[in-house]
């Protein structure tokens, strides 16, 4: 019995240069692994080569022949997706600068591609328009905005190049106008567009693809956008003052000898935390402050300017109530004598 089958493995991807030799070897390794999905597909510039061989027997014995090699080059597919990676609204406050919003730009094509970035702060359907400060590329890839470390993006100068199936994080830095109020929201959007070109799916750019082939616009149109939102958290405080009179006769007339208890109730509204609330009140002319009568939330405070939150300086009381969450109140009381 003669050997009928003569099988030789042969390579089918021919490196075009040293650079693509590396790429080719990577793709060979990937495809040889079972279940190693490569979502972006075969790398742009890869040559698909096909050769058939035949064996047969003649009177002279077994013969093996090869066909010609047919080669086609895989073109570059231009595809990109952009998404917001903030877990929810990014909190801001009136007049705040350096709001940081995060977006992910993913190259879903099959070639190394540069992407132009455009941020839009004036979108309809929201409550205010922040000012764009910068677009910043997460140069160290840690997903966190590091001022002075990450690279400020300048259109036409440093469009980020993203490898197929890879993504980068981009930060959009904005400032919030002073006039906004609690619960106002702003839509901030960013567009990433393939530098090679964009257009309807199927649009092609001759010889513009990585590896010397063409570039073809994929299903995404080679550009993508995503929105993220800023949400204003602001607090407001109202102060309500009431007086209770106790006269020397057990009544409530403002006669000489009567003690007036003033109650100051500060109510914090809105969202978030009101920082460093200080309540001050001048002693009414013609009345006399009653020593050691100052309280905060029913707790007595000394009159001296010391470790506790309150003091009386001879003309007014002052109480530092600290940081107060929205929805809470702080009550200060003091007493004066009508002489």
């Amino acid at each position: 019995m003669k050997t009928r089958y003569h099988i030789r493995p042969r390579h089918n991807i021919r490196p075009q240069s040293c650079i693509y030799a590396l790429l080719a070897s990577i793709s060979v390794a990937v495809f040889s692994l079972p279940n190693a999905a490569h979502a972006a597909g075969t790398l742009a510039g890869t040559d698909i080569q096909n050769v058939a061989s035949a064996t047969f027997d003649t009177a002279a014995g077994p013969v093996t022949i090869q066909s010609n090699t047919v080669t086609i080059k895989v073109d570059e597919l231009l595809d990109v997706t952009v998404s917001s990676t903030d877990p929810g609204d990014v909190i801001t406050s009136p007049g705040q600068t350096s709001n940081v919003q995060r977006f992910r730009v993913s190259n879903t094509g099959n070639g190394d591609e540069a992407f132009a970035l455009t941020a839009t702060v004036a979108n309809g359907g929201d409550d205010f328009d922040p000012s764009l400060q910068q677009i910043v590329i997460d140069a160290n890839g840690n997903g966190v905005f590091d001022a002075g470390v990450d690279v400020v993006y300048t259109a036409g100068v440093n469009e980020p190049v993203i490898a197929p199936d890879q993504n980068i994080t981009v930060f959009v830095i904005t400032s919030t106008p002073a006039g906004v109020v609690d619960t106002n929201r702003a839509n901030v959007s960013i567009v990433a567009a393939a530098v090679t070109g964009t257009g309807a799916p199927g649009t092609s750019f001759a010889n513009a693809g990585q590896g010397g082939g063409n570039a073809v616009v994929g299903p995404t149109g080679a550009q993508s956008s995503a929105s993220g939102f800023l949400a204003v958290q602001a607090t407001s405080v109202t102060l309500n003052k009431t007086a209770t009179i106790l006269d020397p006769f057990g009544g409530n007339r403002p006669v000489p000898g009567a003690i007036v208890t003033y109650s100051l109730v500060a109510t914090v509204a809105g969202t978030g935390l009101l920082n460093n609330l200080v309540i001050t009140d001048p002693i009414p002319v013609g009345s006399q402050y009653q020593p050691a009568s100052l309280t905060l939330e029913a707790t007595a405070l000394t009159d001296a300017a010391d470790a506790d939150a309150g003091n009386f300086n001879g003309t007014r009381i002052s109480v530092a109530a600290g940081n107060v969450p929205a929805g809470q109140t702080r009550t200060v009381t003091f007493k004066v004598l009508i002489p």
Partner: peptide
């Protein structure tokens, strides 16, 4: 293309890795 008959004719085609 020859004048004689070939027998045991077998064609083999390795699949290109990208296909």
């Amino acid at each position: 293309v020859s004048a004689t008959t070939a027998t045991n004719f077998v064609v083999t085609n390795p699949l290109p890795p990208a296909v």
